[in-house]
Amino acid sequence: MRCTCRFIPPHLLRRIALNGSPAQRAAALATLGTDQTLRLSRATYQLLESGAHRALLTSGTAIKQRTIYDAAHGDALPGRVVRSEGAPAVGDVSVNEAYDGLGATFDFYAQAYERNSIDDEGLHLDATVHFGDRYDNAFWNGQQMVFGDGDGDLFNRFTVSLDVIGHELTHGVTGDEVGLVYMNQPGALNESISDVFGSLVKQYALKQTAEQADWLIGVGLFTAKVHGAALRSMKAPGTAYDDPVLGRDDQPDSMSGYVHTSLDNGGVHINSGIPNRAFYLAAIALGGHAWERAGRIWYETLRDKRLRKTATFAQFARATVQNADHFVGSAARQAVRDAWRQVGVKVT
C-alpha cells in the first residue's frame, strides 16, 4: 500500500472541513479533494454526499439560493412559489423586496464575515409574502421568513424595510450559533443581535459609516397616519414613536430603566434597547464602517463557544470586551467597555 506523507492527517482535515472558518474549510476540502489515495477518495466522497458543504465545494464561494412564496392572504406556509433564484423581477413589489432583501442579507454575511448563509453551510433562503389577512407582523418561524401586508392603517407591507429583513434572518443565525433563550435578558440579547445585524445589513448596502447611519429599525413600516419614525431607535431608545394608538416608545436606554414584565416574553423587544445602544456607542467610538470593527466584535461573540444560551447582558458584555481585544485590539477593548458602562452594564 502506498504511503503518503502529509502535514495534516485526513481525520483532522475532515474535522477542519466540517468545523473550521470558511477559508479553512475550503482549503481543507480542496486538500481532501486532490488527494489520490483510495481511502481519502472515499472519505471525500462521504463528505460530499453529506451535502452540507455543497456551496463551498462547487465554487469556493457562497452561493445564494432564494425562493419567495406567496401565501395569498392565507395562513398556510410556505405557499406557492412565485420567484426562484435567478428569475427576473415580477410584478409584485413585496416579492421583489423580499428577494432583494434576502440577497442583500446573504451578501452582507458572506462579504463582511465570510459566512455562508444563515447556518454557514449554504442554507437555502425561503420567505413567504402576503401572509394572513392584513397581517401586521413579520416573523421567523425557525425555518423561514414570513411577511404580512400590514393593515394599511397603521402598518405598510413588512418587506419595505431592509433592516427588518436582516433582523428576521439574523434570528436564524443566532438560533444556529447559540440559540439564546427567547425570554428575559437572553431574549432581549437575541432581539438586540437581530437589530444590530439588521441595521448593519442596511448600512452595508448603503455603504454608510457609523456616523452616517440613522440607527433606526423599520423606517417606512408606519403609514403616514402614525406619529413615529420607526419601530426602534438604537441611537436613542425610547424616541422612535409617540402615537395616540401605538402609545409612546418605552424602550429603556440603560439598566436604570430596565423593565420587568411578563408580557412580550419578559420584555424582549423592550429591554433590547439597552444592548442596542451599547452597540451604537461602541460603533461610534470605533468609527468607520460599523460592520468592520464593532460588528466584527459582536459577530465573533455570537460565534464564541463560551457564550451560553442563557447569557445575561453582563455575560454578553464581558465576552464582547474580550473579543474586542482579540479581534480588533486593546484600544477597542476600552471603547467597548465604555459603551457598556454608559448603558449601566459594568464589565469588571
Binding site: D136, N137, A138, F139, F158, V164, H167, G218, L231, R232, Y241, D243, P244, V245, L246, G247, R248, D250, L263, D264, N265, G267, V268, H269, I270
Partner: peptide, 13 residues
C-alpha cells in the same frame, strides 16, 4: 396580543 416584531404600549393592553 403579545409579541411580534415590536412591542407597542398602546397595543399591549
Amino acid at each position: 396580543v403579545e409579541g411580534g416584531i415590536a412591542s407597542f404600549p398602546g397595543l399591549r393592553k
